[in-house]
Amino acid sequence: MQVPADAAIHANLGLSLRDLGRTRESEAALRRALDIDPGLADASYALGLLLVDIGRLPEAEAAFNRAIEIAPNLAHAHNNLGAVLLQLDRPADAEAAFRRALACHPNWPEARCNLGAGAI
């Protein structure tokens, strides 16, 4: 029987494999974590990061949105969602995501910088 703690182990493994550049294995571990515990926001967020790395932006958008659905105050997910939306040529949506990141973490320089860059 799988328990939620197993999901965190798979998520951590996925992050480590991403750091090693082993993207296929990383994705498998992160998806396994989400199979065990679909409510693990950190695994959805990490999957989004990996999908950005390998250029699968629409899937990354979905992963970040899922992480936000689970944990609405996850500022990093909002910020990275905004970056993806900019790359998908959706500047108004990106601006909204950066503003949500700042609502979660008002003095975060990276989100402020991204908001400014997206407005250009």
Rank of each mutant, 00 (worst) to 15 (best):
A75Y: 10
G55H: 13
A97R: 00
I120V: 11
G82W: 03
G48T: 08
I120M: 06
P72D: 14
E61Q: 15
A62K: 13
T23V: 09
E59D: 15
H10M: 11
A62P: 04
E69K: 11
L57F: 13
A119S: 14
A103G: 12
R66I: 00
Q87K: 15
L81E: 07
A97I: 01
N80R: 03
A67Q: 02
G39A: 06
P4V: 02
A94N: 08
A60Q: 09
T23Q: 13
Q2R: 11
V84K: 01
G48L: 00
L20Q: 15
A71Q: 14
R100A: 15
I36T: 10
L115K: 11
L51E: 03
I36P: 07
D35N: 12
S44R: 02
D37M: 01
L13P: 06
I120T: 10
L50M: 09
P109G: 07
R24C: 06
L40E: 02
E61L: 02
C113S: 11
R31V: 04
R24H: 14
G48S: 13
N79C: 13
A117T: 11
F64V: 00
A71P: 00
V84H: 11
L15I: 14
L17H: 10
A11D: 11
N12G: 12
L88Q: 14
L85Y: 09
R56L: 12
D19N: 14
A92N: 12
N73G: 11
R22E: 14
F64N: 00
H105I: 00
R99C: 03
A83R: 04
A97C: 06
L88K: 07
L17R: 07
N107A: 12
P106W: 12
A67S: 12
D53A: 13
P91A: 01
I36E: 08
H10S: 12
F64T: 00
E25G: 04
H105W: 14
R32D: 13
L86F: 04
E69Y: 11
V52T: 13
A94F: 07
D35T: 08
A96C: 05
A83K: 01
L57D: 11
S26A: 15
R31Y: 08
